[in-house]
Write a protein that binds this DNA or RNA. Structure first.
Length: 564
RNA sequence: UAGCCCGUGGUGUAAUGGUAGCACACCUGGUUUUGGUCCAGGCGGUCCUAGUUCAAGUCUAGGCGGGCUAGCCA
């Protein structure tokens, strides 16, 4: 894995890092991953994690985990725990380097005083509204606050009293004194501190002034001596400010480098929108298997390696992108194909009676566990007179290219026998309820008979007398639009929700070995796809499986093309 | 509208100024006791216009197109 990475050309960030190491600018590198604990991590965060942890790893450096907990109103301990669990699951390790921006509140406070004394920050008594209106616009410069030139002593006193809690929320802020006419609006005297009488998950009621992102982030990077602070393009406009604070303070110069976040077709990755899906009951929670959250993907059956491999093949650049979700699915199948145990299960059963097979006979057939891994060995599956096959594997009036079972047609039962359909039993409504077939004893195990007969199709099956029952949940893309946020004006992005994203199959019949299927293990139900036990809803005896992803299905593709 | 950033096949991403490559997707064919996997082949691209140069995806200028930014969010 790492040899692959070093062999391929370096992306632009790795090029910078390699150069910094080569020129001796840094002896070693240190990156950081700075989640805000206000939501669950999703596939987009996984990109940032793979980049920050992955690059450090490639160059023998380390990565700090630092929670950006500067807004007590939105942040919760539950999220901190979930984030740590997800990063670990993804396969990365921050050792003991778990930090919090709130660890630095005291240092930040002291640095703020230093800037006030140096005439580079001041307390502004304007309301939020006034500040907004005097900030100017994209084309017009801002108007200086009437408090901009008050003396350092007064600001110092006011700032001290802000900290003590003498003033209500929103009554005053501390602002950096930079340039109200700057073309970059972030430089127009940005707010450094606001008053928030809120209880912080970690610092409790110790503080009632909280630093803004711009004032906290770069300084936290510097305190930790982060060499390369990697973030997404949204922060590009903040870099001048990031550098300004560091220069004014004369502290360790961390360097911020931005890359484009990765968008994926048919999915949304915005915490706000994901939260909305949950709150409006469109999904069951952060870990709904249709969610692009790491907890959702995990529950769905995605492997960490497949997600890392995905971001590795996608690469890093600065241009806007919308990655075909098929790429993600490809990486998933690639990994699952390698490791999944093969089993047989019938999702939509139709009964088959083999009329010339002894009623009291049960044979144990040999089945290969994983053709991609010989060491996975073999298992026995029971075969008897009554079986279930997939309803879709039978057609009464099949088209030419249909290779499966039909009246008078012979097919192979995988690892079983070759059978021929002799009779179709229907109910009063005309629906097929049972098939009567005959088998050829010379085809045991599915082998070809000595007469050289050929068969076009091989289908899967389960012994009706030995099958275990299960519920199986089939998932499709959560959205039916390639870009779910692309809404004709006046429309709602939720209108793009795919009404068929969940299909629950309740009468599934699985081979007996699945009775003790384990959570966290992927199984390939042959010819159908990859499945896993649902970690929440499955009970011993009441099995619930999630379909992680279907197998590539050229037959289904042909059908779809025909239709439309 | 101002500043910053970005334009390479359908998608994603490469190419010291020197043969535009790789992956996915798509299309063929082969193997196959999974219509899976695997294997072989194919389709398809440098936003435009000038300029510099023996040579431009790459450098220069001007266009055009897209993204971000006017939170006391991060």
């Amino acid at each position: 894995m790492s040899t692959d990475e070093t062999a391929s050309p370096l992306d632009f960030i790795r090029t910078i890092v390699a150069d910094d190491l080569k020129t001796g600018k840094h002896e070693s590198i240190l990156t950081r991953f700075p989640p805000e604990p206000n939501g669950y991590l999703h596939i987009g965060h996984a990109k940032a994690i793979c980049i920050s942890f992955g690059i450090a790893q490639d160059f023998g450096g380390c990565t700090n985990l630092r929670f950006d907990d500067t807004n007590p109103i939105k942040e919760e301990q539950e999220y901190i725990d979930a984030i740590k669990r997800d990063i670990t699951w993804l396969g990365f390790d921050w050792d003991e380097r778990e930090y919090y921006a709130s660890d630095y509140f005291q240092q930040l406070y002291e640095w703020a005083i230093q800037l006030i004394k140096a005439g580079k920050a001041y307390v502004d008594d304007q309301t939020a509204d006034e500040i907004r209106h005097t900030r100017g616009t994209l084309t017009e410069p801002g108007i200086p606050s009437p408090w901009r030139d008050r003396c350092a002593g007064e600001s110092l006193d006011l700032f001290e009293r802000m900290k003590k809690g003498e003033f209500p929320d929103g009554s005053r802020v501390l602002r950096a004194k930079i340039d109200m006419a700057a073309s970059n609006i972030n430089m127009r005297d940005p707010v450094m501190y606001r008053i928030l009488h809120a209880t912080h998950p970690r610092t409790g009621d110790q503080w009632c002034i909280y630093p803004m992102y711009d004032w906290a982030h770069g300084q936290s990077d510097s305190i930790e001596q982060i060499t390369h602070s990697l973030c997404d393009l949204d922060f590009e406009n903040h870099r001048p400010l990031y550098n300004w604070f560091i220069e004014q303070l004369g502290i360790f110069p961390s360097r911020q480098i931005e890359f484009a976040r990765g968008n994926i077709t048919y999915t949304v990755t915005s915490k706000r929108k994901l939260l909305e899906l949950i709150e409006k009951g469109k999904v069951t929670g952060w870990d709904d298997p249709r969610m692009p959250t790491l907890s959702g993907l995990r529950r769905r059956g995605y492997t960490p390696e497949s997600i890392r491999g995905f971001w590795r093949t996608v690469g890093i650049a600065k241009r806007e992108n919308n990655i075909d979700v098929a790429m993600l699915e490809h990486c998933l199948r690639e990994d699952l194909n390698r490791l999944a145990m093969r089993v047989m299960g019938v999702l939509d059963p139709i009964k088959v009676v083999i009329t010339n097979y002894p009623d009291d006979l049960v044979e144990e057939m040999d089945a290969i566990n994983n053709p991609e891994d010989e060491s996975a060995g073999k298992r026995k599956i029971p075969f008897c007179r009554e079986l279930f096959i997939e309803r879709a594997d039978f057609m009464e009036d099949p088209p030419k290219k249909f290779f499966r079972l039909a009246p008078g047609r012979e097919v192979r039962l995988r690892y079983g026998y070759w059978i021929t359909c002799q009779e179709v039993i229907k109910d009063d409504a005309g629906d097929v309820v049972e098939l009567h077939c005959t088998y050829d004893p010379q085809t045991r195990g599915g082998d070809a008979p000595p007469d050289g007969r050929k068969v076009k199709g091989t289908i899967h099956w389960v012994s009706a007398r030995h099958a275990v029952d299960a519920q199986v949940r089939l998932y499709d893309h959560l959205f039916s639009a390639e870009d779910p946020t692309d809404v004709p004006n006046g429309g709602d992005w939720l209108d793009n929700l795919n009404p068929d994203s969940l299909d629950v199959k309740t009468c599934c019949k699985l081979e007996p070995s699945l009775a003790d299927a384990k959570v966290g293990v992927s199984y390939q139900f042959e010819r159908l796809g990859y499945f896993c036990v649902d970690e929440k809803d499955s009970q011993p005896g009441v099995l619930v499986f999630n379909r992680t992803i279907s197998l590539r299905d050229t037959w289904a593709k042909m059908q779809k093309k025909k239709k439309g």
